[in-house]
């Protein structure tokens, strides 16, 4: 008996999910951050964020097709974290690192928060 593991399968699946997002195929929720709107797949949001996991496993909220985030959330920070969810790449612009980290705290993405902390500490002169 043998087993063939396609080592790049996970990243290929994620790339296709991102293609579906950019073509708005089977996206099932709009995330409202201040005046900006982001279409996404609930399953991807839940897989990556503790906050969205809690929201979409709540029987009263799982059928919502629009979610407004707290107005303190920075849309640019959210956009970068949404991109991370669909690409595994976190773009850290110096001017946005705090907004990204605060948004990751809000979205309950603890591993990203820890990584941002370490990045800030390592880049402190």
């Amino acid at each position: 008996d043998s087993c063939i593991q396609f080592t790049r399968h996970a990243s290929d699946v994620l790339l296709n999910l991102n293609r579906l997002r950019s073509r708005d195929i089977l996206t099932d929720v709009t995330i409202l951050v201040n005046r900006q709107q982001f279409r996404a797949h609930k399953t991807v949001l839940m897989a990556c964020s503790g906050l969205f996991y809690t929201i979409f496993t709540d029987s009263h909220k799982c059928n919502l097709n629009a979610i407004s985030l707290d107005p303190k959330v920075d849309p640019e920070g959210f956009a970068i974290l949404l991109e991370f969810m669909y690409t595994s790449r976190l773009t850290l612009k110096e001017s946005l690192i705090m907004a990204i980290m605060n948004t990751a705290i809000y979205l309950q993405m603890d591993h990203v928060v820890d990584t941002c902390h370490r990045f800030i500490k390592s880049s402190d002169p």
Partner: peptide
């Protein structure tokens, strides 16, 4: 992403969804 200094993070990236709640 050419030209950007890329740091490889080998640790866990996201939470783990429990087998059941």
């Amino acid at each position: 992403y050419e030209g950007v200094n890329t740091i490889k993070e080998m640790g866990r990236s996201i939470h783990e969804i429990p087998r059941q709640d």
